[in-house]
Design a protein around this nucleic acid. Structure first.
Lengths: 186, 186
DNA sequence: ACCTGAACACCGTTCAAGT
DNA sequence: ACCTGAACACCGTTCAAGT
């Protein structure tokens, strides 16, 4: 059934080199780092980069693949086990994930509504996990009844932006305050 | 005492044209809009733009001058009168101000620590007003004793970023939740 | 005193030509 | 099947030459 072919050895090598170089560049100079400099650093022509990754988002998506899997694994486990503080754990994990590269938070926020985005699927899945954890917390009476999954999406997006614009400490504090605001009053 | 001279008529006209064109460009395409296109739209050479505004931030600062005055006037009045909900009013006003152009929130956040920034002074003043309003609210017992001015800076920065990345509704909701988290428990 | 625009360095994206 | 790099369009910034 599979129509997949083994890629040519040089293609595979270029692919890996581009990923490694892009990761370094995005980590250092943010998600807007020049694609030309990435191609140069990987030792390939600019056309080769575009051959493997037609858009910047495709490159980001490929880089995030492993991190996404780890994140979703955590999410599934939290939903299944529903341990105390599951929601807070999830919010912190997503915030960290969205802070992998500076500028990523905005890209992820945009990927939620943009079906054409290579990040759309993982954004949807993150939102879905948030919804489920909110439903669980509400059912167990630890959350305001009007809390929604959208609140969690907003909170993680805001916290990730704060990490970029101000500091991780400010972001952590905001998360704590908001979760406090979301908690059910005794 | 004043060493100020009346500017040449054409200089003044170019200055005003550049401001008008920049306001339109920043409002439409965000704070990163091309300076070359702004100069073109204003009908002047690119060097003329640099002559009047040596950095992008200087241009933004000039555009915000009037808005800043209105904001500070509101802030001073809130501090003087300390009406109910003063802190919430201030947070919403600053959030709106930081959302004037897309991308401005990040610039303002950076201007707080960067003394070289043309926006530094107004950032400091905003933070100062926040501090005073927090002190007033704490003194009147409506705020958690551990609340700080930094919390207000973080909240407005986060809300402005949310407006850009998600929606104004999400931002308003976050502000409400955080202010709830900051309120003194009865 | 101010304006002009060429000059330089850089980037995103495409695509004909190569291997 | 993949890679190369020239080509095009665009931008930030500076500065010598003009008025």
């Amino acid at each position: 059934m599979s129509t997949a072919r083994r890629p040519r050895a040089d293609a595979r090598r270029n692919y890996e080199r581009l990923l490694a170089e892009a990761d370094a560049a995005f980590a250092e100079r943010g998600i807007g780092a020049s694609l030309e400099s990435i191609a140069r650093g990987a030792g390939v022509a600019i056309g080769t980069l575009y051959g493997h990754f037609p858009t910047r988002r495709a490159l980001v998506g490929a880089l995030l693949r492993e991190r996404n899997e780890a994140l979703f694994e955590l999410g599934d486990r939290l939903v299944a086990d529903n341990p105390p503080g599951a929601l807070a754990t999830w919010v912190r994990a997503v915030t960290e994930h969205a802070s992998t590269y500076s500028g990523l938070a905005a890209l992820l926020a945009g990927g939620l509504d943009d079906e054409a985005s290579e990040l759309h699927e993982s954004c949807l899945r993150m939102a879905g996990t948030g919804e489920r954890l909110v439903a669980l917390a509400r059912a167990s009476g630890t959350l305001r009844p009007d809390a929604t999954g959208a609140d969690i999406t907003a909170l993680t997006t805001a916290a990730a932006a704060l990490r970029e614009d101000l500091s991780a400490a400010a972001a952590d504090r905001l998360v704590a305050l908001c979760l406090d605001g979301l908690a059910r009053r005794p």
